[in-house]
Computed example of a mutant assay.
Amino acid sequence: MAELRYGHALNRALMDAMADDPTVVVLGEDIAAAGGSFGVTRGLLDKYGSERVIDTPISEAAIAGVAVGAALSGLKPVVEIMFMDFTTLVMDALVNQAAKARFMFGGQFSAPMVLRTPHGGGVNAGPQHSQCLEAWFAHVPGLKVVCPADATSAYGLLRAAIEDPDPVIFVEHKGLYGRKDSFPEQPAALPLGRAEIVRPGADATIVAYGAAVQFALDAATQLASRGIAAEVIDLRTLQPWDDATVLASLSRTHRLVVAHEAVEAFGVGAEIVARMADIGFDELDGPLVRVGAPFMPTPFAPALEAAYRPSAQRVVEAVLKTMGQQDV
């Protein structure tokens, strides 16, 4: 296993997908010569030319509309929206057109497109450039939603998203782009809808996704020093999500914590704990606990943003709560 940065893994996935399939095209603001705001599309223009790597005007609604039309016409567009906050401007094309295409056309057509976009804080970008809005899209029938936590899953899930016959919202964390992780010599597509147990344990289950996986792992390390073995699950795909893997883990540990950076209220964690309360109630030996951001916009100030974002310590406290222990 070599090492590769998260952003470079995404770049390699795009490179390989475009080499394998001439119908894959990439479009977005400053994604051609500039290589994208975070460098993910760097080098694509030189290799594949301006017919397949297309700079667009600063109009997210227009970008999404073009992508839906291209997808319905036989191409596989991969759209980059510079910050997830501005997916607010693509909602009609994604929610009313792409997500409904297979149903509106009686299964004869679909919209095989990917919308890539970064979410999350940690870079002091403030309330209009730090939001985690993945729960919006996970609520829409017809859309798949993916959020990788490391370089290997970033590559594998993006390859799978591009190959998928339906629209996929591919959520990246801007704080992960520069992170190095182990990376296989021959990476492959990973199945959508399947979670991964990234740390086994017997005393409590922690479910997380994206950047939250790392602070879940850090929490598990801290808990181990207390003699508590926490199992950590990287959800990877938020819609459809792998409730079977989560239930199997809950059946072993009998306690569950769900952690994400998004606002806690009405979030992905709410869906997971509701589902486990339904199908896993008899396995529970403690309360289901969520860890998320408070119900307010992301602060600009570094100290306030650090206090706002979930942390390993908050996950530790949540696990102790579900185990009926006091943090001392």
Rank of each mutant, 00 (worst) to 15 (best):
A220V: 07
Q222I: 12
I228Y: 07
T237Y: 05
T237F: 01
A216I: 04
L250G: 15
A229K: 01
L238R: 09
T245K: 14
F215D: 04
L217K: 15
L256K: 14
P240A: 12
Q222P: 07
A219D: 03
A216M: 04
I228T: 03
D218F: 12
D243H: 14
S249F: 08
A229L: 07
D242M: 14
D242E: 09
Q239C: 08
L256R: 14
S251F: 00
D234R: 05
W241M: 02
R226Y: 05
R252M: 00
L235I: 06
T221V: 14
R236T: 11
W241K: 03
R236L: 02
R226P: 02
V246E: 08
V258N: 05
H254N: 13
A248R: 13
V246W: 00
A248D: 13
V213A: 12
G227Q: 08
T221F: 11
H254L: 00
T253I: 15
W241C: 08
L217E: 07
L217Q: 11
L250A: 11
A229N: 06
L256E: 08
R255A: 11
L217I: 09
H254W: 07
H254I: 12
A219T: 06
V232N: 01
R252Y: 03
A220C: 11
T253A: 15
V258C: 06
F215Q: 03
T221H: 13
S249Y: 12
A216Q: 09
T245F: 04
L238S: 01
A230G: 05
L247Y: 12
R226W: 00
A229Q: 08
F215V: 04
R226N: 02
